[in-house]
């Protein structure tokens, strides 16, 4: 009768919890919103990934879904919403317009939202098939588990005064 126990790191446990409770803020602007609706719908059912419930306040969300074209006029709004989301937060760029501007390369469109805010996962497609979005969600969950999300890495860089384990990198 030996004593059975397992060891693990707290960070892994926390990240595991995070990846299955993504609360998304849908920043829906354009055509991709139609596929985004389909994603919620019965056929594709994003609820299976724990990411079904939209929070329409950025303060309650941790996943920002940028769905559709972002124009220069819209960009300050996007940036503001991103800044309102609490850390750690993740950004998924849904569709080519959000990722690179897509085939709108003109005076009014932002050539990819990563010119405005950091992005964790890009989904190609105009609009992407819901399967691609589910794939991206799995990819994001893996990143969250590994602590590779943009804001997770930023947190590692900034020392927390209460936490002696996070120190700034030694030169």
């Amino acid at each position: 009768m030996g004593l059975e126990f397992t060891t693990g790191r707290l960070a892994d446990a926390i990240n595991w919890a995070r990846k299955y409770s993504l609360f998304q803020y849908p920043f829906v602007t354009a055509c991709c919103g139609m596929e985004f609706m389909a994603l919620w719908g019965p056929r594709f059912d994003v609820a299976r990934f724990g990411a079904e419930f939209p929070r329409f306040s950025p303060r309650q969300a941790d996943l920002l879904m940028v769905v559709g074209t972002v124009t220069e006029r819209q960009a300050p709004v996007l940036k503001r919403i991103y800044e309102q989301i609490c850390e750690p937060k993740w950004v998924v760029s849904f569709g080519v317009c959000a990722s690179s501007g897509g085939f709108y390369q003109n005076y009014s469109t932002v050539p990819g939202i990563d010119h405005v805010i950091p992005v964790d996962v890009y989904i190609p497609g105009c609009p992407p098939q819901p399967e691609q979005v589910l794939d991206a969600l799995i990819m994001l969950q893996q990143r969250i588990q590994d602590g590779r999300g943009w804001s997770q890495r930023q947190q590692q860089l900034e020392p927390s005064p209460r936490d002696p384990h996070t120190r700034p990198p030694q030169p």
């Binding site: 220069e72 010119h115 950091p118």
Partner: peptide, 8 residues
Amino acid sequence: RRQPLVRR
């Protein structure tokens, strides 16, 4: 010719 309002 873009006239950005905000950029990183």
